[in-house]
Structures are given as structure tokens and as C-alpha cells.
Amino acid sequence: MEKRKNQWKAWIYLLPALVILLIFTVWPIINTVRMAFLEDYNALAEVGGTVFHFGFGNFTRVFNPYGGFLIALVNTVLLTVITVPISTMLALLIAVALNSIKPLRKIYQTIFFLPYVTNSIAIGMVFSAMFSIIGGGQGVRPDSWGLINSIIRAFGGDPINWVNSTINWGDGILARSRFANMCVLVIYIVWNALPFKILVLLGGLQNVNKQYYDAARVDGTSRARIFWRITVPLLSPMIAYVVITGFIGGFKEYTSVVGIFTDKMGPVGANIYTPKDNLNTMVGYIYQSLAASEGYASAAALILFVIIFAVTMVNMYVSKKRVHY
């Protein structure tokens, strides 16, 4: 009797959560798949009575070379493939270094965690300010090359147009550079990704059994060998976790670009449809195409899901083979 009484009680406790989940999680899953396969779907037109046909038209249209999705895909993959290894290696180095000191460790740990609790758009604006050239263009020389360029010039380098549109001051021109734009994004994303990775890896290091290191010490193993043969294998579950979440986060990159370049997704005046200028990401593409057709947005969202799912599966497969548990 007690059991039956609890049965309906449990559902009452669950009711609020289930109602909201049904409306804002379950229905979207069904509806997004539906919209993705209805050609040129448009919600307003459907309310008006238009009937849409089943087909793969949204997907072929999304992959149209002039539509902007391919550029976004390339940008996203590039950013992910570059930033994940860099931030993971750096985080590993920092975690090992942190783990080998005692005084001041808490302070360093706190400092390294700081970027995590900040607003990625707000700090993106700070990075943008640090890299940008101030004034100039339309026949006027820039007032200042900006902070980072001033540092570069102090070391004898030439200023680089990191985040601005092309600056033409009459007797000189500094074209915008997609490569430089990407560099800024990579620096910012790595800066932003480090805290979480350091936290996880340091947590893993502190759980490693000391005996392995004692054994290595008795054998007189070198520091590098200890790192590659003991630290990395024993940390491999944590490294795999950090890499997988890094890939997922990378494929969903959006706010970092908005923070630095605004939601125009490129330097001022950049044309979003020219690959040279466009720094759009897949998530950015989904939101932009929402205005044109919910069908395209749904198709793009499904593609994003499939990519993330595939990357996760590949990562898990590789981890299963390589990760030492």
C-alpha cells in the first residue's frame, strides 16, 4: 500500500519539471527534426495555410556555397582544432607546475580560475580594446596603434591590423587580415578555456597515487619520462574529458566572437558573405538563418548536433583504446 501511495506522489513532485521539459525540451526535439525535413519551412506561412513538402532541400540549401554556412563551418572547425590542443597542453603544463609547488599555490590557483567567472562578452570587449587601433582611416592617421601594437613596435615589429576594418590614411594603408582576426580569437578562446581545464587536470593530479612517483624516483627516471610515462597515462581520463568538452564547446563557439567583433561577426564594415571577412560560426549561422526560414535554422542545428555527436563518439572510441583507467 505504501508503494502505491508513493507512486502518484512521485509524479506530483515531478509534475512541474515534466511540464516545462515537455514544452521546452521534448517538443523542440520533435519539431526541429520535422522542420528540418520540410522544404523551405516557414512558421508564419504555415500558420497562413501553406503546406510544405518533405525533402532534403533545407540541407542542400544550407550547404549552398554562397549561403555562409560553409564559411561558418570552416571557421568553427579551424578555431576548435587550433584552440583545443593548445589550451589542453598549456593547462596540463600549468597543472603539473601548480602541483609541484607548495607555497603560493592557492593564490596562483585562484588567479588562474578568474577568467572562468567572468562574462565572456565583457572580457571579449576588453581584448578587442587591447588589440584595436585607435582612430585613423579616411585620410587621417591613427591616433594610436593601440596597446598590443605598441608593445610589438617596442620590440621593433610592425603594427598589425588585428580587429579593425582596413585603415587607409592617405599615405599609408593597413589592410584587415583574416589571419590576424583568427589569431585574436584563438588567444581569447584559449585564455577563456584554461581555467576549467586547469581545475579538472589539477584535481586529477592530486588523486594520482604517490607510489608511482616514488617508484620512478627510486629508478632515477628523468623528469620528462615521468611526465610522459606516468603523469599523462594516469591523467588520461581527465585529459579525455577535457578534450571532449573542449571540442563540444569549440563547436558551439559564438559569444567569444560576439565579444570581440560584435554580432556582425567580423570587423566593422566586413561583408558577412565574403569568406575573407566573415568570422561567423555555426551557432551564429543558426541564429542568423532563423530570420530567413526556420527550416534552414533547424537543418543547421541538426547538422551541428550530428557533428557534436560524431566528435563525441570518436573521442570516446579513441579514449577507450588509449585511455588508461
Binding site: 541564429y287 533547424s298 542545428a301
Partner: peptide
Amino acid sequence: ATMMIPGELFTVTNYMT
């Protein structure tokens, strides 16, 4: 299992809802 799905997939429909 729903935690596997990127939020963007929900956003499209939620926007309409």
C-alpha cells in the same frame, strides 16, 4: 540523454513557441 543535445537545437523551436 537530453543533456547530449546542443541548446541551439531547442532554441529554434522555443523561439517560435
